[in-house]
Computed example of a mutant assay.
Amino acid sequence: MNITVDGVRPVATSLAPAVGALVRGSRIAGTIRFRDDSWATAYLLGSAEGVVIGPVVTSSVWVGRDGARTFQWDVVDGVGNLTRVYRTVTVDNTGPTLRVTKAPRTGPRSRARSK
């Protein structure tokens, strides 16, 4: 009988997009890199891609309307040690607007004098 003693959770070594990143689009991709002494799986909460095994996982989620959006990654190793990582980004899919508050007077005007 083999007994595995592993009290060490997987460690996230990098996460993209960056904290506070400005993102655009209806789906946003995220990537997590992690390490563990054994194998581990990662899952981006809300993703349709499912669970992926490996040290680098890329997945995507629907972002919805503009504003702050927090992603949650769960990384679980073979014996159930869980690391939960959060990343907050800003979704901005609304273009800038322009409002004219005062129009120029009608007719040509010139301050230059001809010689």
Rank of each mutant, 00 (worst) to 15 (best):
R111L: 13
M1G: 14
S26W: 10
P96R: 10
G30D: 03
A112M: 09
V23W: 04
F71L: 14
A12I: 07
Y43N: 11
N2L: 15
T106N: 13
G46Q: 10
K102F: 01
V89P: 03
V76K: 09
Y43I: 04
D66R: 09
R35Y: 00
T88W: 09
I53A: 14
N2G: 10
T31A: 03
Y43G: 02
I32P: 00
G95V: 07
I3T: 14
G7F: 10
R105N: 10
G46W: 05
G64P: 01
G67H: 06
L44M: 03
N81I: 06
V8W: 05
V75Y: 01
R33G: 01
S14I: 03
A18R: 12
R33L: 05
V76I: 14
R113P: 12
T83Y: 00
V76Y: 00
D66E: 14
P108W: 07
G64V: 05
V89Q: 04
S47E: 05
R87K: 13
G107R: 00
V57C: 00
G64M: 02
S47N: 09
P10E: 04
P10S: 04
N2R: 15
D37H: 10
G50E: 03
S60T: 02
N81Y: 05
P96V: 12
S59H: 03
S60N: 03
V8L: 09
A29E: 12
P17A: 09
A103F: 07
S14A: 14
P108L: 08
D6I: 09
T58L: 05
L82W: 13
T97D: 11
D92G: 08
V23R: 13
N2A: 15
R105Y: 12
G80N: 04
S110T: 12
T58C: 05
V75F: 10
S14T: 06
V19C: 00
Y86E: 13
P96C: 05
A18F: 02
